[in-house]
Amino acid sequence: MSAHAHQQHDATGHHDEAGSVKLYVTIFVALLVLTAATVAASNVPLGRWHIPVAISIAVIKALLVLLFFMHLLGGSRLQWLVVAAAGCFATIFVSLIGADYASRDWYLPPPAPLEQQIWQPAEIPPSAPADKP
C-alpha cells in the first residue's frame, strides 16, 4: 500500500513537469497575496481580532507550503501521520502549559484575618537550646 503511494509520489516530479511548475507559481502568488493581506490587516484597527486574523493567515500559508511545496497532498499515509503527530503533540504541549498560565489566578486564597497577617516570631520553648544538643 505504501509502496504504491510512493510510486505515485515519485511520478509527481517525472511526468507532469509543466503542470507542477504552473501549480507552484500559483501557490507562490497565493502566498504573496496572503502576505500582503496579513500586513494590511496589521494596519487596520481590528482590536482583539488582530491575533486570530494573523494566526489564521499564517496557518493557511503554512498549509499551502506543506500541502503543495512539500507534497503532503498525494503523499503517503505515513507522511500524514507524521504531520498529524507534530500537530497533535505541539497542541498538547502548548495547551497544557497554557492551561497552567490561564488558571493561575483563578484561585487566590481568601485574605487571612488581620491578626494573622502580621508576622510574629515563633515562640521558642525555653527548654530547647538554639544549637545542636
Binding site: T38, S42, A54, I55, A58, V65
Partner: peptide, 18 residues
C-alpha cells in the same frame, strides 16, 4: 528548506505584526 520557510511564516506575524 520549506520547513524553514514555514517557521518564518509564523515568526513574521508573531514578532512584527502583533
Amino acid at each position: 528548506w520549506h520547513f524553514v520557510d514555514i517557521v518564518w511564516i509564523f515568526l513574521f506575524p508573531l514578532l512584527y505584526l502583533l
